[in-house]
Simulated scan of single mutants.
Amino acid sequence: MIKIIQVGLGPIGQQLTRYLTERKGIQLVGGVDLDPAKTGKDIGELAGINELGVSVSPDLGSAMKETEVDVAVISTVSSLQKIESQIKDAADFKLHIVSTCEELMCPFDLQTEIAERIDQYCKEKGVACIGTGVNPGFLMDYLPAVLTSVCQKVDHVKVDRYQDASSRRLPFQQKIGAGLTQAEFKEKGDSIRHVGLKESVYLLARALGWEMEKVEETLTPVLAEERIELDQILIEKGYIAGVEQIAKGYKNNEEVISLNFKAAVGLSRSYDSIEITGNPGFRSVIDGGVNGDVATSAIIVNTIRSVIAMNPGLKTMLEIPAPAYYSQV
């Protein structure tokens, strides 16, 4: 039985609670959230399920009293800089760490100093740490890396993730700028961007043994071609319906990796596509795409067993035993 403590009980954290409690072989023994309105509440009730007899604590120290824990599941922030102290707190209690933090997924090339500090601290405390999710962490980096295993030669990898955001949660729609004017979009700048696309380029490059000379990223708005009215959001014609974000990696002055993330309300089709140019060259398509909310929580749960089996330190998805759905009988 793997004993888990959750740190961060927002929308994704609450979904994780539901998934963790459904899975045989896992026992949820604690929850932590800084929101004082959540302190003392039953973590199950907070997640909209039956009470679990586990109360939300304001800090990790309080949650750890009189209980043994194996893993901290952290779903709090996207920033590597902001999550560093949370990782160290968990490591101080000898907890392995699995996190949804996008910048934690492959930070060694972009934020080298912080990544090395986290890696060294985890090694000193004897715990393993990993950041993962559906994207980054799987669809645009780990999965294409695995698909290249059948290639004798790879010249170029192109990944497209197109999502019609019409059925996604309101927070996701707001995250991609849906409903904003073009002026408001410009004012918000980087706060709208999908976090982790450059990290995905670097993870894929590491898998292929490619050293990136440069990685470029662009972000452009997707405009509504007609008025779109949903239950919780209204998008006028010409207003922002979503974003298109492209990251490209270069080797020997040539583009060798292209990642295209497009999420907008009203897209005609959702799909995930991986195209490999090489020997053999092929294209793999997931028609309809992978549901981001479901898959992010699922891969976090499924990675728990893998991270426990690892040597101490900050890991990437390339280093851990391949995660898969599991449930102890």
Rank of each mutant, 00 (worst) to 15 (best):
P136Q: 08
F172A: 13
S166G: 13
V256D: 04
Q14H: 06
V54P: 00
E22W: 07
K158Q: 12
S273E: 15
I49T: 05
K65G: 04
I240V: 15
T67E: 04
G177R: 05
G30T: 09
H96P: 00
L9S: 01
N302A: 04
T21C: 10
K186V: 11
E124R: 13
I246Y: 05
Q27N: 09
T39I: 02
I308W: 03
G266L: 06
H96M: 13
P221W: 07
D42N: 03
V98F: 05
V157D: 03
Q27A: 08
A322N: 09
I274A: 01
M317D: 04
G25D: 04
M64W: 06
A309I: 02
V71N: 03
D92N: 15
G179C: 02
D119N: 15
N291Y: 05
V73S: 04
K158C: 07
S99H: 13
I192D: 00
M310H: 08
R206I: 02
P107Y: 11
A72N: 11
G278M: 03
G288L: 01
E255V: 09
Y121C: 09
G289H: 05
K175N: 09
L46C: 09
L139G: 01
E319A: 12
V154P: 00
V69H: 10
F138H: 02
G209I: 07
E213I: 10
T39Y: 02
S149L: 12
V215M: 11
T132I: 08
D59N: 15
G288I: 03
P107D: 05
R18D: 01
L139F: 01
E84C: 08
P321R: 13
K41V: 00
N50Y: 12
F261P: 02
P36D: 08
Q152S: 12
S273F: 04
L267N: 06
S99F: 13
L204Q: 03
I320C: 10
H96G: 07
G278P: 03
A247L: 06
L20I: 15
A128I: 08
I97V: 15
L147Y: 15
M140R: 06
Q81G: 09
K82C: 00
G266A: 07
Y162A: 07
G242V: 08
S273C: 14
T67Q: 12
I308P: 00
G209P: 00
S79E: 06
Y239K: 09
L9F: 02
S57Q: 09
R305I: 05
H96W: 02
L143T: 05
A183L: 11
V56F: 01
G189F: 10
G30C: 09
L16C: 14
E187C: 07
L60E: 12
V159S: 07
E255H: 04
V215W: 10
V71E: 04
Q111K: 15
R23G: 03
Y271S: 00
Y142Q: 11
T316R: 06
Y326Q: 05
L223S: 12
L28W: 10
V307M: 08
Q173K: 15
L180C: 10
K88C: 12
D109Y: 13
C106L: 04
S167V: 01
A128S: 14
S78W: 03
E22I: 03
C151T: 14
K24D: 12
I286Q: 06
L314I: 09
C129Y: 12
I2M: 14
A90Y: 11
K3F: 06
V201R: 13
I74E: 07
S258N: 14
I300F: 10
I246N: 01
T303R: 02
I276F: 08
V73Q: 02
